[in-house]
Amino acid sequence: MSHNNNLGSLIDRWSERLLVDGYCVIPDLVPVAEVAALDADLAEDFEATPFCEGRFYGERTKRFGRLLARSPRAAALVQHELVLGVVERVLSPWCDTFQLNLTQAIAVHPGALAQMPHRDQDMWRGEVGEVEYLVNVMWPFTSYRAENGATRVWPESHGHRALDPVPEASEQVPEYGPGSALLMLGSTLHAAGANRSHDVRRGMIAGYSLGWLKTYENQFLAYPPEIARTFTPELAALIGYRQHRPNLGNFEGCCPSVLLQEGLPTRLAAADALRPDQKEAVDEHAAQERRSLAA
């Protein structure tokens, strides 16, 4: 009980900070040794992956996804209890369930230019200033400092302020290291900084979006059923092997989690997955139809 009470108070605290400022840094979430082990698991991918093409991704930056398939250690960060609690608190007003939008490892090499300031919610052409579509979580594998290109953020540039011009003077560069994490709303203006150091800045992003949106990373290609079957049911659901009511993301009219079962039938019976208000309306309509037939 005490754990749940303490977790709840932490979720309250950090959710409020995130919603007020548009970002927050939560310190000491995981042991540094766990982060170092994940970094080591991905070392070969960091080495072999070519530099990005295009100035937005960064021509001195390397990026790759599918981290849950590359290292089993990625799941501990993606499913961190406090982080998921904050994400649920922030996004739940607009969705039935939220989903993993992406996992992406990033290595910003010396000489990388500063990225253009942007808002990640702009990947979707939805209403600006009314809905929060996304929460991104940045997990550093090395120290993040202004000198090596740490993320620049513009506090209070989120929500309805996304419609307003933001003065350059309000820019902040949070500095933090492995074990801590930067949480940022999808409506917050931000950008990777220039790497003026001699070190590579490495880390990963785990992003979470409203469950009815098209994800940035195609989770079903990243984690097809043969891979998703090795995940816990909770992780499989987070990457999309569950429906968002009403019936969104279904397979043959069923929750896509059926694809993770052994002995899947050749034919499936489609089954309603409705919100309570929709079920009530459908049941009332059916009752009226029965009364009409009986008259």
Rank of each mutant, 00 (worst) to 15 (best):
N4T: 15
N4L: 15
N4H: 15
N4S: 15
N5F: 10
S9R: 13
S9A: 13
L19M: 09
V20Q: 15
V20R: 13
D21L: 10
G22F: 06
Y23L: 03
D28V: 03
V32F: 08
V32G: 03
A33D: 04
A33K: 01
A33Y: 05
A36W: 01
A37P: 03
A37W: 01
D39M: 02
D39I: 00
A40R: 14
T49W: 07
C52K: 03
G54L: 02
R55C: 15
R63F: 06
G65F: 04
R66C: 03
L67I: 01
V78R: 00
Q79D: 12
H80Y: 07
E81M: 11
V87A: 00
V87L: 01
W94H: 11
T97P: 01
Q99R: 09
L102P: 06
I106Q: 06
A107F: 01
A112I: 05
L113R: 13
Q115T: 06
M116D: 11
H118L: 00
R119M: 04
R119C: 09
D122Y: 14
M123Y: 14
M123E: 09
W124S: 02
W124F: 08
E127F: 11
V128L: 12
G129A: 12
G129D: 11
Y133D: 05
L134H: 02
L134E: 02
M138A: 12
W139Q: 02
W139S: 00
W139P: 00
P140V: 06
P140G: 07
S143G: 14
E147F: 08
A162D: 09
P165K: 05
E168N: 10
S170E: 10
Q172I: 08
P178R: 00
S180Q: 07
S180M: 09
T188L: 08
L189A: 01
A192W: 02
S197Y: 06
H198C: 15
G203T: 02
I205S: 08
S209Q: 08
G211N: 05
W212G: 05
L213T: 00
K214Q: 15
L221N: 15
L221M: 14
L221P: 09
P224D: 07
P225D: 09
P225Q: 06
P225H: 10
I227T: 09
F231H: 02
E234I: 03
A236K: 02
G240E: 03
R242Q: 15
H244S: 11
R245D: 07
P246N: 11
N247L: 13
N250D: 08
G253Y: 07
L260W: 08
G263L: 11
T266D: 13
A269D: 05
A270P: 10
A270C: 06
P276F: 05
D277M: 09
K279V: 14
H285T: 15
Q288T: 12
R290T: 14
A294P: 00
A295P: 03
